[in-house]
């Protein structure tokens, strides 16, 4: 194959037709409150890990729901499971357990 000095850039669109929804489905089944998140960001604002790292819990949840799980393992490793987020959530999402379930799913599906 010929080298032109560049390659065809990969598309970074989220493609919902081919997205890997296994983690999202697993979490929704085992921690149904994951469904009622309204992405308000209260969790992120109070997140201990978020203060010291670039972890964004609100965004992480959204990405999992879209099947964007390539970086989930690295991101979730920043969480200390302190559970402050669960206390802060205005919708009563058990955010701490969502993280636990995401972690379980990542192990289960070897991701």
């Amino acid at each position: 194959m010929k080298d032109f000095g560049f390659t065809i850039n990969k598309d970074r669109q989220i493609d919902m037709d081919t997205a890997d929804m296994r983690v999202a489905e697993y979490v929704k089944t085992h921690e149904p409150s994951f469904n009622i998140c309204i992405a308000c960001g209260t969790c992120t604002a109070t997140c201990s890990a978020g203060i010291f790292t670039d972890m964004n819990l609100r965004k992480l949840f959204t990405l999992v729901k879209r099947g964007e799980i390539a970086n989930t393992r690295t991101e979730i490793a920043k969480c200390m499971l302190c559970g402050k987020c669960s206390l802060a959530c205005p919708r009563g999402v058990n955010t701490r357990n969502v993280i636990v379930k995401i972690n379980q799913a990542l192990i289960k599906f070897s991701l």
Binding site: R12, D15, D17, E68
Partner: peptide, 12 residues
């Protein structure tokens, strides 16, 4: 755009 994910999104 999924503005909460900060990425363009397509879906059939």
């Amino acid at each position: 755009e999924d503005t909460l994910a900060g990425k363009p999104l397509r879906m059939t």
